[in-house]
Design a protein around this nucleic acid. Sequence first.
DNA 1: TGATAGGCCGCAAATATTCCTGAATATTCA
DNA 2: TGAATATTCAGGAATATTTGCGGCCTATCA
Lengths: 155, 155
Amino acid sequence: MIPIMDDIDRKICSILQEAGRTSSAELAEAVGLSLSAANDRVRRLVAQGAIAGWQARLDPQSFGLGLCAFMLLDLSFDGEAEAVAELVSHPEVQELHHISGPHSYLMKLRVADTRALQAFLTRVVKPLPAVLRTESIITLDTAKETAAIAVGADR
Amino acid sequence: MIPIMDDIDRKICSILQEAGRTSSAELAEAVGLSLSAANDRVRRLVAQGAIAGWQARLDPQSFGLGLCAFMLLDLSFDGEAEAVAELVSHPEVQELHHISGPHSYLMKLRVADTRALQAFLTRVVKPLPAVLRTESIITLDTAKETAAIAVGADR
DNA sequence: TGATAGGCCGCAAATATTCCTGAATATTCA
DNA sequence: TGAATATTCAGGAATATTTGCGGCCTATCA
């Protein structure tokens, strides 16, 4: 099956990435299809992998996680894989990207406060043999933070 | 109402941020409560704001968005607010953080390819009067990318 | 023009959610 | 301490949603 995606599919995805609990009836109405047709679409999109999962978005503040930080990492080639495996295993690490440029990796962290960041750095990051250098970036204020992608459904 | 959160609340949140469509029955079973009690919890967590929303996680590749990039921005104070407002209005911009350190902002972008990144830079970023300098960081490989936070429910 | 496949619709059964009541347990205050 | 008040939980009925199925329509292709 060739995963062609038409405007209706995109609109469905657009709606669901904003409001994941939209009922099939509402969804059907929004895209102008019958309930069962809309449902078929959603099921197909999940099967195709375009919809990768469903999740509740939690409020970090409610869980005492007030600090978002980024960390640039310089890793030696030796032990790099082990370091990556160790880092991604921690829930404080939300993202870990291998990047272009003078640094090896960019890591996104979500922790309670600067104290917790310091603790994470000391307990987890620095002990890794591959870690040559780190540079921490604290977010002071967040203007936008979403995982939503540009589906292009509004045309 | 003081939003006290006990272990059961945390476990519920932990489950739902992994699998947002878990049925109340499953949820109830997982935390050892009756269906209605588990449901009450979820409703309360939503009302409190601990659960901020529900969403389908989409696969960027399926929508032709193969490139994740970060951009460090140096903005002049003059026109900063307008630049921020303009940037966050674009769906390609997933995140925009005001950060500590020598740069003003860190922006996360999701676009089709380097060509699209270049186009965004030329069409959207550079024309902003407040933009003094930019530094683009391309992600070569992503070891982890999640919005899940450390709920601390596994204790 | 006839066969076939894909998408859509509507209905009915199965399942899930919501709402209500009452009992048990904590908490507050005199 | 003891009574009054709140919370939290459980069960069940009413409501809503999801799922599965059969059939219709349309586009495609030989």
